[in-house]
Amino acid sequence: MRVGTVGEIKNHEYRVGLTPESARELVVNGHEVWVETGAGLGIGASDEDYVAAGAVIQPDARTVFDGAEMIVKVKEPQPVECAMLRRGQILYTYLHLAPDPEQTAALVKSGVTAIAYETVTGPGGSLPLLKPMSQVAGRMSIQAGATALEKAHGGRGVLLGGVPGVLPGRVLVIGGGVVGFNAAQMAVGLGADVTILDRDPEVLERLGTHFESRAKTRFSNRANIQQMICEAELVIGAVLVPGAAAPKLVTRDMLKCMKPGAVLVDVAIDQGGCFETSHATTHQDPTYIVDGVVHYCVANMPGAVARTSTYALNNVTLPHALKIAELGWREAMRRNPHLAAGLNVHDGKLTYQAVAEELGYAFVPVAEVLG
């Protein structure tokens, strides 16, 4: 199979779909790899590195899109990229379709077979292709929040760890999954006063066992969210409903009790955000203020640490890419139902139920598509 990867064009997105090492693995397994010139520069990978791995460098994205049977990316295709996709082609990348009707309509129109990293499953309902970026984003959320808390960035002027004689900053993490756990780890490491909210008693028990007295846990309900955000200097939104839009857990009315200069970091913004006042921002202009509260809602947080993120992502996406290239997407999915869960769009049809319901499309089960 001819597999292609292109430079990402989303604002300040430096990751790339295939590292030179991943390209080599595809090549030694008998596949052809096309790489847009300069695609890997954001992770420090030159065209020469890809050539040494056996890849073919192409002059532009159009050439790669026109010639490749499978496109491997990181972020969802932008409108100009959607226009280059075609029926019968495979797109393998993050999609986050539920809050993005325009992208969904463009993919449906193209006829492409679109496989979303974020809905590929693992044993026990895990999301192994989402996990490494959730780990990165969770850890980055504390870095970003700590910076936004600085007075020069519009924040309250609080040092999360405090100093002797001065109380540390209070951090509220809403959601105890992969993002929330990693955010809490970083905040605890800085010496902050950390509370984690979640609705699952087993998650709360696991978090309590892990953090012991270093972080507090509470059941997530409206009353507890309202109380805790009034006390917090930094709130991390870390909730996830796989494939669907994130629930709006913090309303605008709730912001009235928050301290001026407090910070909200919405890690769920890729799925529409879990704060009512959230809208997507970029690394170029990452924050805005609503009712005196600083909002950080960058939709591709891991793109800022592109080298770490790309290698972590390739570790989990490459095995599926190799199987798709070897067997074709249909046979690969017949053999692996976890990969089949990643199919979101095929030949103008929505094949992921949560997205279809959210956006009002007819839902076609993957089993029906696979025959």
Rank of each mutant, 00 (worst) to 15 (best):
E48S: 04
V3S: 08
D200E: 15
A246R: 01
L190E: 02
F363K: 05
V33A: 06
R2S: 04
L322M: 13
K216Q: 13
L107C: 07
T281N: 12
L149Y: 06
E150V: 04
H283E: 12
V136G: 04
L127H: 03
M1L: 10
N344S: 12
L41F: 10
L197N: 07
V173N: 01
D347C: 04
M258C: 07
K75A: 02
K256S: 15
V28P: 07
H12D: 13
A52H: 10
N314I: 09
L26G: 06
Y352D: 05
T308C: 13
C82F: 11
G88W: 04
A116I: 06
V158G: 01
L204A: 12
L327R: 08
G44H: 15
L343R: 10
G161E: 09
A68E: 00
G273W: 01
P201S: 02
A306C: 09
V203A: 08
A223M: 02
V33F: 13
A52P: 04
V316M: 07
A304E: 15
A184S: 08
P319V: 12
Q78W: 03
P101N: 05
R156A: 15
E8L: 07
V294N: 00
E205T: 13
A232V: 09
D66C: 02
P123A: 13
G161Y: 11
Q271E: 11
P77H: 09
V120C: 07
G175A: 03
R335D: 09
P128G: 06
V120D: 02
A114M: 03
R170V: 06
A306H: 15
P286H: 12
H31R: 06
T19L: 05
T217H: 03
E102D: 11
V178Y: 07
T63V: 14
S46E: 05
M258Y: 05
A325R: 11
P319W: 13
A137G: 02
E36L: 14
V158F: 00
L127T: 08
V136Q: 14
I229G: 04
